[in-house]
């Protein structure tokens, strides 16, 4: 529908058959407002767009400007604990003090580098784990009997709806030294010393794969379910072996699903806090945990903000990739 059409419709909506609108129309300030709104190109359509737009601008985009601002401030023992960038000095000159010391500090102190690289490594390995476990599951679900598909889908979604924190907590009971796995293995006589699994990187991998697996399966399933089966049949009829069919047809066609799933796992996993805090050891450095500690333990807001900016820079490319595939999917009408 054309823009003009919407404008006309908006006007009809404003003062059409509605008795209330007609009454309001007799009230001059209302008429002036409408005239101003119309001059500015504001119509019902604009209002509908503006409401969610303004909310997200104010509470999602604008906050990043404040993160950048505080990252350039200095830490103070005050409330709030940072210096202000813009000050009126005594001779009424406006001075702007930018402090890049926080970023230099991040570069100099190798704690941050290690945390940065380690987060990337842990997120990458966990994403691969999710993909290796999730792809066969999504494939099997998409090829299952249609009556079963919805049940299986519900089974994948169900854990996602129960508390994330409690599901991570469940792994403490399973992985700890006198936990489920060690008890079972010792009971069977396979080992006689408990295997130390809690507070290691291994526990963090398990935790991330476990909690993010549904995020991997769902986009893969949506993609594989739409896959045109006749293509596979045609290839098989022409004598193509099943493995070759998979690698030359199914896998390339499912790349959008793979990318979406991997981004849904990788990006939040990089900044993960709860899983390394509960399952990881004191030496499991992850950038989300470093940020948390700078903020809550050291109360150093500027350094925490600088860490946040650094993480955002790391994640800009994956986030853009994700958005690109996401909007392509949305336009295809998933």
């Amino acid at each position: 529908m054309s823009r003009e059409g919407f404008v006309a419709m908006g006007e009809r909506m404003m003062h059409g058959a509605d008795p209330l609108a007609r009454m309001l129309w007799r009230f001059p300030p209302y008429r002036w407002c409408v005239a101003v709104a119309r001059r500015l190109g504001l119509t019902g359509r604009t209002a509908v767009i503006a409401i969610p737009y303004l909310w997200l601008l104010l509470f999602f985009l604008v906050p990043f400007a404040f993160v950048l601002k505080i990252a350039l401030a200095e830490a103070l023992i005050a409330r709030p604990p940072y210096s202000s960038l813009i000050e009126w000095s005594e001779d009424t000159y406006l001075t702007i003090k930018l402090n890049i010391g926080n970023f230099l500090f991040l570069i100099e102190d190798d704690l941050y580098w290690k945390a940065y690289l380690n987060s990337g490594k842990i997120a990458l390995i966990s994403t691969l784990g999710c993909l290796l476990l999730g792809y066969p599951m999504a494939y099997a679900m998409a090829r299952a009997n249609p009556a079963w598909r919805n049940v299986l889908l519900m089974l994948v979604i169900l854990p996602f709806w129960t508390s994330f924190l409690l599901r991570v907590y469940a792994w403490i009971g399973i992985l700890k030294n006198n936990g489920l796995i060690n008890n079972v293995l010792m009971g069977l006589g396979i080992i006689d010393q408990p295997i130390v699994m809690m507070q290691t990187d291994f526990a963090v991998y398990v935790g991330i794969v476990y909690t993010y697996l549904p995020f991997m399966i769902l986009p893969l399933y949506a993609n594989l379910e739409r896959l045109d089966v006749t293509l596979l049949e045609a290839a098989a009829d022409l004598g193509c072996r099943p493995t070759k069919v998979f690698f030359t047809i199914t896998l390339p066609l499912s790349i959008p699903g793979i990318v979406a799933g991997c981004m849904l796992v990788f990006i939040p996993a990089v900044g993960e806090f709860v899983i390394p805090a509960l399952l990881g050891g004191p030496d499991t450095l992850m950038i989300g945990r470093v940020l948390w500690d700078e903020f809550f333990a050291n109360r150093d807001w500027p350094v925490a903000s600088a860490v946040a900016i650094a993480v955002l820079l790391l994640l800009v490319v994956p986030i853009m990739l994700f958005q690109h595939f996401q909007s392509a999917e949305a336009e295809a009408g998933v």
Binding site: L56, L57, F60, M263, L291, A308
Partner: peptide, 27 residues
């Protein structure tokens, strides 16, 4: 921009969203 602002929160690490909102509220 609206597309971006509705898809980015899906993957944004929570520590970043939390910190940025807090700084907004304080300001």
């Amino acid at each position: 921009l609206l597309t971006g602002m509705t898809t980015a929160p899906l993957v944004m690490p929570e520590v970043i969203t939390g910190l940025s909102l807090l700084l907004l509220f304080v300001a």
